[in-house]
């Protein structure tokens, strides 16, 4: 089961649409499991939140084996810089683990028009699929049409699709089948 935990208030319709999309993508039941406060310990000097600290400091929710928890926040997140600098990460997942955090701060504004809301929801769904994919041990994919393609890639289309490619879908299905308790 995939449990969505919000660290700030979100529109219930957006969450409902997100739950539907995640269910379609992984074939797993998805629900909004409540809201929790954003841990203040995770805030760094530059005003961003350390993604690893968010996951370690956030209040836990009740989960069962193989449950995956996705935390949503609009606060900008930061990750440890690498040898070539800090990658512009949209999310941070524990690879093969059970928790991931997604920052919606990089997603274009939701707006008020129908099209902008739709675009927001699509992008939110795409990034959520990406974050949960890492929890199922999916790697980044070179296919720009796949949801596992890096979110900052210059090859990513304007309105990226919210689907997995065949290879990633097969792999995720295999993982889910193997891990089902």
């Amino acid at each position: 089961m995939i449990r969505i935990v919000t660290l700030e208030p979100y529109d219930p319709e957006d969450l409902a649409a997100l739950s539907r999309t995640l269910y379609q993508a992984y074939g797993l039941g998805t629900e909004h499991a409540g809201s929790k406060p954003l841990p203040a310990e995770a805030e760094s000097d530059d005003g961003r939140y350390d993604a690893a600290k968010i996951l370690s400091e956030v209040e836990p929710i009740k989960t069962f084996a193989d449950d995956k928890v996705l935390y949503l926040t609009s606060a900008p997140i930061r990750v440890k810089p690498g040898p070539l600098g800090e990658p512009p990460s949209w999310c941070y997942s524990i690879f093969g683990g059970d928790r991931a955090v997604l920052s919606t701060g990089r997603i274009p504004a939701r707006g008020a028009s129908e099209s902008s809301i739709d675009a927001y929801r699509r992008r939110l769904a795409r990034e959520s699929i990406h974050a949960v994919g890492h929890l199922w041990e999916l790697h980044h994919c070179y296919d720009p049409r796949c949801a596992m393609h890096p979110s900052w890639s210059p090859n990513l289309p304007e309105n990226p699709e919210q689907n997995l490619c065949t290879f990633c879908r097969d792999k995720s299905e295999r993982r889910i089948r193997m891990s089902k308790t």
Binding site: V79, P83, L84, P88, I94, F95, H140, P150, W152
Partner: peptide, 18 residues
């Protein structure tokens, strides 16, 4: 580091943003 972060590093080098 976390493997997911290592992957971000990897793709940051392979596919840097514009």
């Amino acid at each position: 580091i976390e493997p997911a972060l290592a992957e971000d590093y990897l793709d940051y080098a392979l596919m840097p943003p514009a």
